[in-house]
Design a protein around this nucleic acid. Structure first.
Lengths: 201, 201
DNA sequence: CAGGGGTGTTAATGATCGTTAACCGACTCT
DNA sequence: AGAGTCGGTTAACGATCATTAACACCCCTG
């Protein structure tokens, strides 16, 4: 035994099956909710029936865990990357909006699951995901405060949640074509953020 | 038997127990999801244990059904009322925003359940709720088009979903105090709607 | 060709949980 | 006092469903 062989190999080229299963599961979870989907349903969706999935995942909860930690990490890293490569604070903010809009439009099923089934996670996974979320929001809050000096932190945090809610509304929406939807959401998000929330009426 | 005595008496002054149960159930559903809450949990939350609830509701699904049709009707009727009592189209829109913000802040648990557990409903309830939702959105779409002439209907519908998403983000948000939150959400919603989504860049 | 890892299959197992049964005290109305 | 309804209790019942057992291939390497 060369220590533990199949634990967490980050340099591993992802095969296909796991991801195929996760994709199908995401669609199903998005439509029916985590508890509304049986292990057999997921199996059927990828052409195998029932407990075959246990060859690929330790449990049903593990699927959800991997799915949600995956999306949360992608969001956080993407956000950080956008911030890093931006010149002005205003540009950074715009970049974040663009990133999140694109992400939400591309991964609407994951967004839905993320909003909906977070607390079907096991304790440790839930904490991990919440921590990643928190850090992602923090990226937004910092960017927002830099771009709108004088904005206090609690307000910035609330405004961030609101804008993310706006963008994440995408799964509920009767979709326009992707490019129209992208510009619409982008414009509305910036409009919401431009509403000078720092000044009194 | 004087026909059916306890069916649908709309003129009835609501007692207390059903509503108490619905309130507790709403909080629990919001926190743990419909399937994540047992009948015993709901009972415990109101001080009785277990199947006592069946003296008040036909089933667990019936609770969810009543909860969600209730909220949907309140939203629709409130929306219609605001529209009716408004002078200018701009004022009507503003009135809708105010109404929804207030509602979401006052009933954040219901909003959460509404977004999350819609498809745990029985077929007929689900259709009823979706129909009410559709009509509520229609109220917004009409108001929006009147206030922003030249806006095409699909875009107006998408914009409506986005604004509702913004306002409904309230449950996820680290709440400011209610009045600050109200003005912030109101301002951001109007800002999003003012972002002249009809013009090209 | 022996054999072992990876991937499926179907049939038990066991827990959870909504729902019902059977039973009971309290309060009202006559 | 007595009958009935209302709201509650605890103990079965039954279904659903994740998980595991036991068994069967395929394929690749030695």
């Amino acid at each position: 035994m060369t220590h533990n062989a199949a634990e967490d190999p980050p340099t591993e080229p992802p095969p296909t099956r796991r991801e195929q299963i996760l994709g199908a599961a995401a669609e199903l979870f998005a439509r029916y909710g985590f508890h509304g989907v049986g292990i057999d349903d997921i199996g059927a969706a990828v052409g195998v029936s029932g407990p075959a999935l246990y060859r690929h995942f330790r449990s049903k909860d593990a699927m959800l865990g991997e799915m949600l930690t995956g999306i949360s990490e992608k969001l956080l890293h993407g956000g950080n990357a956008r911030i890093a490569g931006a010149g002005t604070p205003e540009h950074a903010l715009e970049s974040l909006v663009h990133w999140h809009v694109e992400f939400a439009l591309t991964n609407s099923a994951l967004i839905t699951v993320h909003l909906r089934d977070l607390d079907s996670l096991s304790e440790p996974d839930r904490h991990r995901v919440r921590e990643l979320q928190r850090r992602y929001v923090e990226v937004w809050v910092r960017a927002l405060i830099e771009a709108r000096p004088g904005l206090d932190e609690p307000t910035a945090r609330a405004a961030t949640h609101a804008v993310l809610g706006l963008i994440n509304s995408t799964p509920y929406s009767a979709r326009l074509d992707t490019t129209a939807m992208t510009t619409l959401l982008h414009r509305m998000a910036m409009g919401a953020l431009d509403s000078e929330p720092t000044r009194r009426a």
